[in-house]
Simulated assay, not measured.
Amino acid sequence: MRAILMNARGGREVLQYGEVPTPEPGPGEVRVRVKAVALNHLDVWVRRGVASPKLPLPHILGCDVAGVVDALGPGVTGLEVGLEVVVNPGVSCGRCERCLSGQDNLCADYQILGEHRWGGYAEYVVVPAANVLPKPEGLSFVEAAAVPLTFLTAWQMVVDKLQVRPGEDVLVMAAGSGVSVAALQIAKLYGARVIATASSEAKLERARALGADAVVNYSSPEWYKEVRRLTGGKGVDAVVDHTGAEFWQGVIKATANGGRIAFVGASSGYEAVTPLAHVFYRQLTIYGSTMASKSRLYPILRFVREGKLKPVVGAVLPLEAAAEGHRLLEERAVFGKVVLEV
């Protein structure tokens, strides 16, 4: 099969177009003919060696896949060849206490497609049968590929961790990213007033069009003061963040007494300075978050089907242009997802 192979760790040049044997599904697995695969910053971190630095090479990136079931492994029931599907990127053992309690993203053997196992920058991908769901009718493969990882990640942050309630002020950092585009919509779905930040006026306008009630350009060193002004000096009740060290102190200062912060990444660096007096004296709660239970993709796709949540695609490229897609991500040149058509 055709694939984009990561033969080393480093710059975009390590992504090479080539061919590898087509994988065969084992017991309980299905093979999906990839129609579209969305890019994530996780792809960049894996390529650079920041995430999973000991990963065997060559490797195939790509967490978010939409396609067609092409083959069924032994023992697979309830699915059929030709079914159009969305692939859930979280893979777990399915047997342990965490998995059976619905916390499969805390499984000791948890893997993410494209990070820990070969992903979707290819014509075919093999995944457990439990990881495919029917693609919502009316949604293109490109749009469907823009849903799984970012909406799952945002759902756990907004719904499961922060437990956002109607009327709360929610700050969504870096609103042009895939996770933040999803978080903004989910927070609005749950009745929140959303304040979105971005680094350009164009992205701020896109955030407004997506439903943000107020916007702040966080290029200003004291951007958090504007967030507090917009909340009458109180600060926000909850924050969705993945911006990392550069903005961490501002995030804490923008949060109200008793507020909650959920963070899922560190785009500007991992080594952040935390003003602890703000945390204990103002009684802040800080949640780390990674992905979500596989079960959460069911309500997400229902809301997508109903038009209450919408994938946002910023650029579509052919598979061979994966390196260009990485450039767009690294330069933050798009609002929403970058998707490769296969």
Rank of each mutant, 00 (worst) to 15 (best):
V32H: 06
Q16L: 13
A8M: 08
V34T: 00
E29F: 01
R12K: 14
A8S: 14
A8N: 14
G11N: 12
L5F: 12
L15V: 03
P27Y: 02
Y17I: 06
P23V: 06
G11K: 06
E29T: 01
K35A: 04
V20Q: 14
K35G: 13
A3L: 11
V20E: 14
L5A: 08
V32C: 03
E19S: 15
E13F: 08
V37A: 07
G28E: 06
Q16P: 02
M6W: 11
A3S: 13
G28Y: 05
V32A: 04
V37R: 01
G11L: 13
R33G: 00
P23Q: 05
G18Q: 09
V37G: 05
V14M: 08
G18W: 11
A36V: 11
E13Q: 11
V14K: 09
N7R: 15
A36S: 09
R9G: 02
G18N: 08
P21A: 04
A8Y: 09
T22V: 13
R33N: 00
G28P: 00
G26L: 02
R31A: 08
A8K: 14
G11V: 12
V14T: 13
E19C: 10
K35E: 13
A8F: 08
P27H: 05
M6P: 11
E24I: 00
R12C: 03
A3V: 15
P27A: 09
G18F: 12
R31H: 07
T22G: 10
G18I: 11
T22H: 09
E19Q: 15
R31Y: 06
G26P: 01
G26I: 04
V30W: 00
V37Q: 01
L5I: 11
A8G: 15
K35W: 10
V32N: 03
G18T: 09
P21H: 13
R33M: 01
A36T: 07
R12S: 09
L15N: 04
P21D: 11
G18Y: 11
E29R: 03
G28R: 06
A3M: 10
I4A: 12
E19P: 10
E29G: 03
R12A: 11
R31Q: 12
G28L: 06
I4Y: 14
P25V: 02
R33F: 04
E19G: 09
N7C: 13
V37S: 03
E13I: 04
L5K: 12
P25E: 07
P21C: 03
G28W: 05
M6Q: 14
K35M: 11
E29C: 03
E29M: 07
V14F: 07
P21V: 05
Y17G: 00
A3T: 12
V14Y: 07
G26M: 03
G28C: 05
E24Q: 14
L5M: 13
P23C: 05
P21K: 13
V32D: 02
V20H: 12
R33L: 06
G26R: 07
R12L: 07
A36F: 12
